[in-house]
Write a protein that binds this DNA or RNA. Sequence first.
DNA 1: ATGGCCGAGATCCTCGGA
Length: 258
Amino acid sequence: MKITSWNVNSVRARILNIKDYVKQSNPDILMIQEIKTEEKSFPFDDFDSLGYNCYVYGQKSYNGVAFISKKKIDGIDNNYIKDPKKQSRIITANIINKSIKIKLINIYVPNGNPINTEKYTYKLNWLNSFIKKTKKILSTDKNIIIGGDFNVIPEKNDVYDYKKYENDALFKLEIRKKYQELINLGFHDVYRYFNKDKYEYTFWDYMAGSWQKNNGLRIDHFLVSNNLLDNIKGISINKKPRGKVKPSDHTPIELEIA
DNA sequence: ATGGCCGAGATCCTCGGA
């Protein structure tokens, strides 16, 4: 079973690229972030024509997350944490793979820049709420996959020039510690687990030829609970969509489950 | 060392992103 996470930076502006990707890569479930639209304007028909069901938690102009799934999925929930700003950043579902029940969590973590503003404290509070809730459910749900745009650069080697990011909300030590705190609840960063010495990115800014220069960041991640780790066959970052015409600034990350 | 790009919405610019 293949599960992909991709920050598409507008599902409507990106629809042709997304459809090309789905046809080529054939994921069972696609978790998308930053759909930048309300549910009523979501391109359901485009996905329906490819044989996919859509589960959308949208918002006008900003944010928004969704599951695109070949099979129908149950237990869709848009209220994993209480968001004081009511932004659409988390959608969860319950899936069954080979008779194992898995909770699937699709997240779009706040950016948090610039630091020393309310945007940064919103990110910190958001991460704290997410950690607290995840700790709570882990006592009953042992099989959890968290995927999405975490807006966290975990380590120095996960960014082309970490010195530029030391005072950035994506790499600030306080934020990286929150990411570690989440992992310490009982998860693995799957990409790093399978790639101890390989450094790839999932995001390249539109500006200044970042893609051409490979000035990237690894900020899109899959975390799986320890209980599930042996069921993971592999993970890969698919760079092809980032090189296309009219790309998202993020590229898909693909998780393969036994 | 600096500046550079996109998308959405209601214009002809602002905000947000990372």
